[in-house]
Lab assay of single mutants.
Amino acid sequence: MAAAAAAGAGPEMVRGQVFDVGPRYTNLSYIGEGAYGMVCSAYDNVNKVRVAIKKISPFEHQTYCQRTLREIKILLRFRHENIIGINDIIRAPTIEQMKDVYIVQDLMETDLYKLLKTQHLSNDHICYFLYQILRGLKYIHSANVLHRDLKPSNLLLNTTCDLKICDFGLARVADPDHDHTGFLTEYVATRWYRAPEIMLNSKGYTKSIDIWSVGCILAEMLSNRPIFPGKHYLDQLNHILGILGSPSQEDLNCIINLKARNYLLSLPHKNKVPWNRLFPNADSKALDLLDKMLTFNPHKRIEVEQALAHPYLEQYYDPSDEPIAEAPFKFDMELDDLPKEKLKELIFEETARFQPGYRS
C-alpha cells in the first residue's frame, strides 16, 4: 500500500510507478496490472468513496492506442447498470505532455475469474450472474457493438453480487458484411471463450460470437473449470467437437473457408456428449439454455433477447427493466489503419471533457 500523499506533496508512487492523480484522489492501494497499465484503488475526496484507477501508458504502440481509444469512446457513450462506466479521466493539459491516461471507475471487490478459483456457486448465484451478463449484453448488442472478449476476468463483482462487464478494448461495431482481413492475426481474445466460426472463417462476425462466450462462462460457473481449455488453435476446435459432436452437413455448409471445411470433413465422426453427463448436478433449465448458447452453427445460436426470456431466468426476466441503447454506435473511421500519432490526438480530444474549465 502506498503511503497517503500529504496535501501538495506531488504524485504518489505505487510499486515504483508514478500515479499522478492528486489532489482529488489519494490513499492509493495496488490492485493489479494488465498488459499496459496498473490498477489501484484510491480515495475520492470529492465523492467520499474509494474508486478504481487504471493507469494506461499506450502511446508507444499502435495496438494499445487503438484499444484505449475504443474503450474510452464506447464506455463514455454507454450507460447501463451492468456495464462499468467511466467516472473521470485524468491526463496532462497538453498533448505533448500526455504520456499516461488515468481512467477512474467504480471500485468492484472482485471478478468472476477470482471468485470461481475459490468458491463453488449455488444455482441461485449462477442464475443471477447469468441474468446480469445477458442484461448488459442486450444493451451492448442493441448499440450494434460486439464485445468480443467476454470471459470471467472481464466480469466485475461486488459483495452485493452486482455484476458489471468491463474491458471493451477489443470491441467492434457489428459488421457481418465487412471482410476484416487479418482478423485472426489481430484477434487476441482469450482462445477458450472463442466461437468456432472465428477459427473457421475470417469473413465478418456477428453478435452470436458473444453468446458463445457467455455459454462458455455459464459452463464454467457450473463446474469451476473452463469447458474448452484448448492449448492452441486446432486443439481448441477438437475440444469443442469432442463435446458438441461432429457438425451436420448443414452446419458445414455455413463454413465459407474450404480449407477449414475440408479439415472438419477429414475428422472421424464424434457423438455429442449429453450435458447432464458433463454437469450431473446442474439445473435442467440451465443445461437447456447452455445447449442453445453453445450451438456450433452461429445462425442457430440463441440471441440475447431470447436467452433473457428463457425459463431458467424467469424469476428475473423483465423486458421493461432491460434497457437498450438510445442509438446504434458508430465509429467515424476504422481505427485499425491509423498511425499511433493520430490515435493519440483522438484520445486527447475524447478525454477533453474531463479537463478543468472544459467548454463543449
Rank of each mutant, 00 (worst) to 15 (best):
Y233P: 02
K207M: 15
S57T: 14
K259L: 09
A52D: 14
K231E: 10
R77S: 01
L234D: 03
R359Q: 11
D177Q: 09
W275Y: 07
E345F: 02
P268C: 07
Y64F: 14
R261Q: 13
W275T: 09
F19Y: 15
R91L: 14
V304Y: 03
L222S: 01
L218T: 12
I95V: 00
D251F: 08
Y43V: 13
A7G: 03
S246A: 09
L290K: 04
S246G: 02
R91C: 12
N158L: 11
H125K: 06
W192D: 02
D332S: 05
N271P: 04
K117S: 03
H269I: 09
L308F: 03
C65G: 00
R135V: 01
N45I: 14
L335V: 08
E96S: 01
Y205K: 08
A35V: 12
N158K: 15
D336Q: 01
V304H: 09
I74W: 00
D283R: 10
E109A: 07
L244N: 03
V49G: 10
L116N: 02
M108A: 07
F331L: 15
Q236S: 08
C216T: 04
L222I: 09
V273L: 13
I133Q: 05
K207G: 05
L146V: 06
L75N: 01
D175S: 03
L115I: 05
R261V: 10
I56Y: 15
T63I: 13
I255F: 14
L137Q: 15
I140G: 07
P226L: 11
N87V: 12
A52Y: 00
K114Q: 14
T160K: 12
A3H: 03
I243R: 00
H147E: 04
K164H: 07
V145S: 04
V173F: 10
A309V: 07
L289T: 01
N123G: 09
S122Y: 10
D88L: 06
V49Y: 12
A260C: 08
W192T: 10
L287A: 03
I209A: 03
K54G: 12
E197R: 12
Q119K: 12
P58W: 15
R301D: 03
A35R: 11
S142I: 04
D337E: 15
E71N: 05
L150N: 02
K270D: 06
E186H: 06
I243T: 02
A325Y: 03
D149H: 06
L294F: 00
L287V: 10
E197P: 09
D283L: 05
N201V: 11
I83P: 01
P298Y: 02
N154S: 12
D111K: 03
R79N: 05
K300L: 11
N27D: 04
D106V: 13
G85S: 13
N154I: 15
E314K: 14
R172C: 06
G16K: 05
I31L: 02
L244I: 08
P23R: 08
D106R: 06
K231Y: 09
N276H: 03
